[in-house]
Design a protein around this nucleic acid. Structure first.
Length: 618
RNA sequence: GGGGACGUAGCUCAGUUGGUUAGAGCGCUGCCCUGUCACGGCAGAGGUCGCGGGUUCGAGCCCCGUCGUCCCCGCCA
């Protein structure tokens, strides 16, 4: 088969834009053959570009040459068609496609390029195995769904840029090759040729640079920044990902919240969703743990209810439940009435979930079978009903699944758990059951309206985390996060690290952490004190962050900021279940790029130039 | 590092208790067809059952190992 040269031909329109108003015009389209329907002397080609599909008609009587070329055309061939647009006749229109009222009657057709039969068809709705999709990513990206995802991504990024620029932010780039810092995630390292044995690290985030920019007087900085972390992956974690990173001088927390909410409104508007014009709700970390058992609550589900007050001390005594431990209940809405078998299965499942952890399912239905406990059952159900009512304005019904978890009776002495551990464990069960019954309660379904998106701020994270392995206090956020000023004044930094609250906050959407930030430390003396409280000697701190400590001494303004995951925002807006759906060239769970086949070994010559030698680990 | 699911034609999948020549749909190839739009009709090609080893008279199926993809835990300041 002979391919045609393009010559000076230019396309006049795109495949998605033609309507009856264009009828009668001579039009040139270029694109890919989506499907071919060959009726002998009449051939239909669906011509596709990223904007849509237009039906092209090849009539042997109109142009035998064009018709002959269409006979040779196959799916994914690249062609140019020139012809006259006409309205389809009565009964011939296709109401299922935007261009379905018109068709292009081809007078000439150029075969610009042929194509091997692709391993899977971008025209099909059924999607192939992800391994094949990633290997042939260029074909996968032709699918309408993927094209849509990247259109959303581009628009969202642009909307955020526009918003931040309108708010006085400067976009400033920071290095990709920087210095390794021992904290946090593992670094991706880049060997230096010029300095044998020395390495750059790819940034886990532009954290220190953006703080330096504040010191430099750029009082509002932002960047759509690539970040790199060498940790194991998940559906919502890629080794390189994109953050909307920003920092503000002289802020209150509320300043940063307002900016972040502002650009989220703009981003959602760009995706066609108008969020309500009211501030996101806020709760402290402690409240989040107690009400949702997690630091990123999914507000599409009712909260947990503390039933401790419902169980009288006498009852606790008789049930042998430690009086200091919480008893929690929660409701999964609209699960529908369970049969006896289903109920027993569920109880087994819950007991299995808790294993020998010392938590147990309290079956309210069984309480009702014993006259002594009927009032208790009623009180418990009343409390759960109140939460349901608060949640969605409708009281608890028998269709809703009520779950009550107690510390297992009779083993109080074995308990030395932190109550927080119990909240978290039960919170995990809440999510587990919500996922299990997602089909029933439908609260996770997306209708792409504002009501689907439940935002909140979680504030006052703990400053320190106890590291059981090293028996030390680690920074829960990062070591540049400012504690509450009162917690510095009170001496808690030294005396009671567990109680110190950080001026750190997360923005959470539907149980996903979208972003995280903090007010930073701007005083050298406080920064040094924090390093010391983390068990870092002055010498160590100097060795690791000397340049930064130096910079702090030259007039550092109070500052703070936040970074939000662009990939996650787009993923949620696209209704996707994985970041790979919104990253053009993502990596697999083992951090491999199946298309380019990276990483690879390199030649000995390359290694020698870098003064490197590889060793095989046993 | 740990747990789980999956791997059979280009794609999506079926394959009985281990038993003759491993199937289907889509796609592909050829021929026919002037109103289709997931066109239709006829004919056809296409398989290292992920890979290696074992058990067995006999393995897609059982066992051991290994590789790959996905999900989860750990990890991700």
């Amino acid at each position: 088969m002979t391919l045609d040269f393009l010559g000076t031909l230019q396309r006049t329109h795109t495949c998605g834009e033609l309507r009856t108003t264009h009828s009668g015009q001579t039009i040139t389209l270029m694109g890919w053959v989506n499907r071919r329907r060959d009726h002998g002397n009449l051939i239909f080609l669906d011509l596709r570009d990223r904007t849509g599909i237009t039906q092209v008609v090849l009539d042997k009587e109109v142009s035998p040459e064009a018709h002959a070329k269409a006979e040779a055309a196959r799916p994914e061939y690249v062609i140019a068609v020139t012809g006259v647009l006409r309205n389809r006749g009565e009964g011939l229109a296709n109401p299922n496609m935007p261009t379905g009222d018109v068709e292009l009657v081809a007078h000439s057709l150029l075969l610009l390029n042929d194509a091997k039969t692709p391993p899977f068809s971008p025209a099909e709705d059924a999607i192939a195995n992800e391994e094949v999709r990633l290997q042939y990513r260029y074909i996968d990206l032709r699918r309408a769904e993927m094209q849509k995802n990247f259109l959303v991504r581009s628009r969202v990024a642009m909307a955020i840029r526009n918003y931040l620029v309108s708010q006085g932010f400067l976009e400033i780039e920071t290095p990709f090759m920087t210095r390794s810092t021992p904290e946090g995630a593992r670094d991706y390292l880049v060997p230096s040729r010029v300095h044998p044995g020395h390495f750059y690290a790819l940034p886990q985030s532009p954290q220190i640079f953006k703080q330096i920019l504040m010191i430099s007087g750029f009082d509002r900085y932002f960047q759509i920044a690539r970040c790199f972390r060498d940790e194991d992956l998940r559906a919502d974690r890629q080794p390189e990902f994109t953050q909307i990173d920003l920092e503000i001088s002289f802020p209150q927390m509320s300043t940063i919240f307002a900016v972040a909410e502002g650009f989220l409104h703009a981003a959602f508007r760009a995706a066609g969703i108008e969020l309500p014009d009211e501030p996101f709700i806020q709760m402290t970390y402690d409240q989040a743990i107690q009400k949702y058992g997690i630091d990123k609550p999914d507000m599409r589900l009712p909260a947990m209810v503390d039933l401790s007050a419902t169980i009288t001390p006498e009852l606790r005594e008789s049930l042998k439940i430690d009086p200091t431990l919480p008893i929690l209940g929660f409701t999964i809405p609209r699960v529908s009435t369970l049969s006896g078998t289903q109920r027993r299965g569920l109880v087994d499942e819950i007991r299995k979930f808790f294993g020998d952890s010392g938590l147990d399912f309290l079956d309210v239905a069984r309480l009702r079978t014993n006259a002594t406990f009927v009032p208790l059952a009623e009180t418990i159900e009343g409390r759960l009903s109140a939460e349901m009512s608060r949640f969605n304005g409708v009281s608890h019904t028998s269709e809703d699944l009520a779950v009550v978890i107690t510390p297992k009776p009779g083993t109080p002495a074995m308990w030395n758990y932190d109550p927080q551990w119990i909240y978290k464990r039960i919170g995990a069960l809440r999510l587990e059951l919500a996922k299990k019954f997602a089909d029933k309660h439908k609260l996770f379904e997306q209708t792409q309206t504002a009501a689907d998106f439940k935002f909140l701020w979680v504030t006052d994270f703990p400053m320190y985390e106890w590291n059981e392995e090293t028996k030390t206090w680690d920074a829960a956020h990062h070591p540049f996060t400012s504690p509450h000023e009162e917690d510095i004044k009170s001496g808690a930094l030294v005396n009671d690290k567990g109680s110190v609250r950080a001026l750190a906050y997360d923005v959470v959407l539907n149980g996903t952490e979208l972003g995280s930030g903090s007010i930073r430390i701007h005083r050298k003396d406080v920064q040094s004190e924090i390093f010391r409280s983390l068990g870092m000697s002055d010498e160590e701190a100097k060795a690791r962050f000397g340049f930064f400590l130096d910079a702090l001494e030259y007039g550092t303004p109070p500052h703070g900021g936040i970074a939000l995951g662009l990939d996650r925002i787009v993923m949620i807006l696209a209704g996707a279940q994985s970041l790979r759906e919104v990253i053009a060239f993502p990596k697999t769970a083992k951090a491999i790029d199946l298309m380019v086949d990276a990483p690879t070994t390199v030649s000995d010559a390359q290694l020698r130039e870098l003064s490197l030698r590889t060793v095989t680990r046993s």
